[in-house]
């Protein structure tokens, strides 16, 4: 009896010590994230209730900033326009990313070829997003490469105007920038699928379509969820591509916000930041409810 409790105590102490080691190991990262992410986020939550005028901002607890924000039709218009971009970019990168991952994981037989092709897709991601964005300008422009090719091939006799500085060029840039964010997590999930499962399904007479529909898609849902989170949040958080590639015709949630910040109107900017954070939070939480990303990442 006594020895049992002693043993229990020892095990307890050992577990405590193990926790302590883990806490020390994660400590520096936790400190940085708390100090430079959590705290600043709380700060603009607080500032969103402050009062302001042309001269400065004043500590207060007023809801005017939120009321002004939510009753302005422009706010809703901008959210709608950004969501339209986000859903379109999500759908296209999902289809593209899924099929490219499928090809790399299940159709390429040599590991070396797979590695090379994957690197070919991944390397541009590690180069400047600004440069990759403006790279489309000489390609899509009025006298750009694409129009020149079309005219040389006599597919059109005058340059297409809608290619650049339009919703089209914004969309093209998003797909260019973010397809990898969808493709890589999906490929990662697919690589974990046991190949014997596919064999078994085929032996049982499943068609290729059925294999994709009933085995591969359900088993790569973590990757799909993770990729969706990344693409959605990147497009919603974007302000550069919209500003640069729409030619000033479209605004995004964050580009409107940055205008307010530049005008030093911190309380209303903070209010719209809070609304955006809640919006993104609900979206991400919704996706994470469908798939337990953490559970599957640790696998």
């Amino acid at each position: 009896m006594i020895t049992a409790t002693l043993g229990e105590k020892k095990a307890h102490a050992r577990r405590r010590r193990a926790w302590l080691v883990s806490w020390m190991q994660v400590g520096p990262m936790a400190a940085v994230l708390l100090l430079l992410f959590a705290l600043p986020t709380l700060l603009f939550l607080v500032v969103s209730f402050f009062d302001y005028d042309r001269v400065g901002i004043y500590p207060a607890f007023i809801l005017d900033n939120y009321r002004d924000l939510l009753t302005t039709p422009a706010t809703w218009r901008i959210y709608l326009s950004t969501m339209r971009f986000a859903v379109m970019a999500w759908a296209i990168t999902l289809v593209l990313g899924f099929y490219i991952a499928l090809f790399l994981v299940f159709h390429i037989r040599s590991a070396k070829t797979r590695m090379i092709l994957f690197m070919a897709c991944a390397v541009p991601f590690w180069t400047s997003g600004i440069i990759r964005t403006i790279a489309w300008i000489p390609f899509l422009g009025r006298n750009g490469a694409f129009n020149t090719i079309l005219m040389k091939m006599h597919l059109t006799d005058r340059p297409l105007e809608f290619l650049l500085f339009s919703d089209f060029s914004v969309m093209v840039t998003y797909i260019h920038l973010y397809t990898l964010l969808m493709m890589a997590p999906i490929a990662n999930s697919m690589a974990k699928i046991d190949k014997n499962l596919i064999e078994a399904a085929r032996d049982c007479g499943a068609s290729r379509f059925q294999i994709v529909r009933h085995i591969i898609i359900p088993l790569s849902r973590t990757g799909i969820a993770l990729g969706s989170i990344l693409v959605f949040t990147q497009v919603i958080g974007d302000y550069f591509v919209v500003k640069r590639m729409s030619g000033g015709q479209s605004a995004s949630i964050v580009s409107a916000l940055s205008t307010e910040i530049q005008a030093m109107q911190y309380p209303p900017a903070a209010a719209s930041a809070v609304v955006l954070v809640i919006f993104v939070g609900i979206l991400v939480a919704g996706i994470m409810r469908v798939v337990d990303v953490r559970q599957e990442l640790a696998r």
């Binding site: 603009f44 958080g237 964050v254």
Partner: peptide, 21 residues
């Protein structure tokens, strides 16, 4: 979840918060 939140947070807002601080 703190790390995930920091990853998905619209980037400009992170700078906004730190700047305010």
């Amino acid at each position: 979840y703190l790390a995930i939140a920091s990853l998905v947070m619209p980037s400009l807002l992170v700078g906004f918060g730190i700047g305010l601080g």
